[in-house]
Amino acid sequence: MNCLTVRNLISAYIDCELDPEQKREFRNHLFHCPECNEEYEQLMSIKNCLENSCQEPVDFNLLEALYARIEEEKLAINPQTDGFYWGSRILMTAACLTAFFLTTFMLFPMKQKSTAQTNLSFSSPGIMMDQNITIDQPVNVYQASWVLP
């Protein structure tokens, strides 16, 4: 075994992953080669260092975390199991309806007003539609749709 081969096998030797013949040759080389021996000592100290690195304290319950995750998934698949779900559904529908009626009321304020205008426009049967436009009245398309049949 030459130095290059030995250096590539250092970790495998440290981890007892060499076959007996390789192990014997490896030891033989280290005995005669201080450079490879130093390399071996250094890598050995790295392994020892990691092996002896202090265990981090565990303040975490794995099973609790697992069941919390399972619950999360159940809620995501079957949201109706949640009591609040339907309550919030009804509230949302009510809010949408209210908003719809309010907007409609504001956009088409008073039917009386438009009929008054109609009366005004058509009070005299002699006045034609195009004459109305020439008076420079502001035109609202929604009001127009109310007025016209």
């Binding site: 590539n8 250092i10 970790s11 495998a12 981890d15 250094q42 890598l43 790295i46 392994k47 990691l50």
Partner: peptide, 17 residues
């Protein structure tokens, strides 16, 4: 696996030694 461990340790050596 062997080469990853060997290279990994050599890289760690620079920081830890």
């Amino acid at each position: 696996v062997r080469s990853r461990i060997h290279r990994g340790r050599k890289m760690l050596r620079r920081l830890l030694l």
